[in-house]
Design a protein around this nucleic acid. Structure first.
Lengths: 196, 196
DNA sequence: GACAAGCACGAACGATCGTACTATATTGGA
DNA sequence: TCCAATATAGTACGATCGTTCGTGCTTGTC
């Protein structure tokens, strides 16, 4: 890794943290330069535009997300256990970043801001939902889930649960939410499970 | 209503629309002045600070929300029917505003911005969750729900469902989501319902 | 018709925004 | 060790940010 790529990683790390707190649009080049002890122009030279900076932050986040959330879950045996592992990894992921999940923040931030950033975000969200769907499919294959279930439906309900958890946890600072989340997940899995 | 109060309503209406799209923090006084055909200073005089403007937008939104979503639902008979009415009103509410639900947008926007705006938002969200909880309580009283259910748990699961719907609907433009939402709501209500 | 209050305006403030240039360090290969 | 490439800093730009101030235009009241 060259020196330039090295500092770029530092910038992206700091930018990711900033975006998780204030939103991707609120990441300003001047403020980011202060946090990384660089000059505005020196930092800017790495990205050529703010739009590129935002996109690279998103892609950097996606790399970390894949490595910390998805891949470890895929190493466990397919079925409800893998789904629970994924959920636990996701919760740990929202704890790693100071502000919470950057994708949740960016989603509300860019839902009405057309452009390349929104396009990237959309593809990422679709990939994530597809990941959830495949979790359900492999749970069918493993025999944990019934065969007649709607995997899209499952993905939607599971993602909804995570979004609810995120709001209770990050905005309302609700202490009991982890337990509520556990119960809701159990109810969801039970309903989709093969009756014994 | 005096002339001043009249234009203030126009400003808040436009500000609410803007906040629902770009977020409450992205509502700029200059841009809002353009949309309402006013001067920056003329508009500013109504609020004395941007913080006050944001707070008044939130309160204006809460008034509309109560009138369009909560009150009509409370006029129906308590129980699962009332909950369904509330959900339908909520969906219609997210359709009324160009960008979606302002509270969802503001929640991610202000989760890490301490201050008066965040305090107001927090109280509003707690009131909303309390509203959902009372819906469950009255459903118990009416005999629709079992008596041993956890109303906080129900509020969390229902709110999560709405958040998921909002993301699919507003960011992903998912056409099938209304049907997915309907199915998930049925599953939720069934699980909490008194067995016949 | 004078007067006060309410309301909106234009101009200007310092700060920060994203971006464009130019120049100076720092680096790795010949 | 010299050179070219890479990497950072400095300065400046027009635009916009939230905010302040002074001014004039409408109102409704006496």
């Amino acid at each position: 890794m060259t020196r330039g790529e090295d500092t770029k990683q530092v910038i992206l790390e700091s930018g990711l943290d900033m975006a998780s707190q204030l939103g991707l649009e609120a990441v300003s080049i001047g403020e980011l330069a202060k946090k990384t002890d660089m000059s505005k122009s020196g930092l800017f030279a790495h990205f050529q535009s703010k739009e590129n900076l935002q996109i690279e932050i998103l892609k950097h986040a996606a790399d970390l997300f894949a490595a910390d959330v998805v891949v470890p879950a895929l190493k466990t045996k397919a079925g409800t256990g893998r789904i629970e592992a994924l959920v636990n990894n996701w919760i740990r992921w929202t704890d790693m970043l100071t502000g919470g999940c950057i994708f949740v923040a960016a989603s509300t931030d860019f839902k009405d801001r057309p452009g390349k950033v929104r396009d990237v975000l959309l593809r990422q969200q679709e990939a994530w939902i597809d990941c959830l769907r495949r979790m359900a499919q492999s749970a069918i294959a493993s025999g944990d889930f019934r065969e007649d279930i709607d995997c899209d439906q499952f993905a939607f309900e599971l993602y909804s649960l995570l979004l609810g958890f995120h709001l209770y946890y990050k905005l309302l600072n609700n202490k009991d939410i982890q337990e509520h989340q556990r119960i809701a997940l159990k109810r969801l899995l039970d309903d989709y499970q093969r009756s014994p």
